[in-house]
């Protein structure tokens, strides 16, 4: 018997695959970005279906609320309404790329089917663990004890990235003087 969580998974999986395909296919980059937003939101609720509600919230804030807004804003500033060359040229090259992707997908699916399809479904979590506070506390404990070095390294990386992005955006010209 399908539970409502299973039903939720199928709906969200359909939405995310449909709009994920739209990201790749849409000729107007703005539509790509908007489809990406919908994919991000459905991925966030897939995290929720896996009882990771804190990550779902973070996914909404970071991806849907910040990263994709950045993409949309940059595209709007570029004003690329009429994109002529959407896809790469060359029938042979494109065919090879598509076949390679299909083979990769087939290999992945067959591997998952042969390895994990016989596994039992998720065990229901005990009631104490389903409370998101407990799960979030576990996450924080793991993040600040086992992975503290990686956490600090990521912090340093973010600082470098921030400085780099600001520097890049303040560059006025290339290696040579501008004509004007």
């Amino acid at each position: 018997m399908l539970t409502s969580t299973d039903f939720l998974f199928y709906v969200l999986a359909f939405i995310s695959v449909f709009f994920g395909a739209a990201v790749v296919i849409a000729r107007n980059p703005i539509y790509s970005a908007m489809s990406l937003v919908i994919t991000m939101i459905s991925v966030a609720f897939l995290f929720g279906a896996l009882d990771a509600w804190f990550l779902a919230g973070v996914q909404l804030i970071v991806y849907a609320g910040a990263v994709t807004v950045l993409f949309v804003m940059v595209l709007m500033l570029f004003d690329l309404k009429h994109e002529m060359k959407t896809f790469s040229k060359g029938l042979l090259g494109n065919g090879v790329k598509l076949i390679a992707s299909g083979v990769t997908l087939g290999m992945l699916l067959v591997y998952i089917w042969s390895t994990y399809a016989t596994e039992p479904t998720f065990k229901p979590l005990p009631p104490a663990a389903t409370s998101s506070i407990k799960a979030t506390k576990d996450l924080a404990t793991s993040l600040f004890t086992d992975y503290i070095f990686a956490f600090e390294a990521i912090g340093a990386l973010l600082l470098i990235i921030a400085v780099g992005a600001v520097t890049l955006s303040r560059i006025t010209g290339g290696t040579h003087h501008a004509d004007s």
């Binding site: 937003v37 939101i41 919230g57 409370s131």
Partner: peptide, 17 residues
């Protein structure tokens, strides 16, 4: 959802779209 404020911040950040 049990994470209250995180979800509220996430949802209201969609207002920019």
């Amino acid at each position: 959802f049990g994470v209250g404020i995180v979800m509220v911040l996430g949802i209201s950040s969609l207002g920019a779209y």
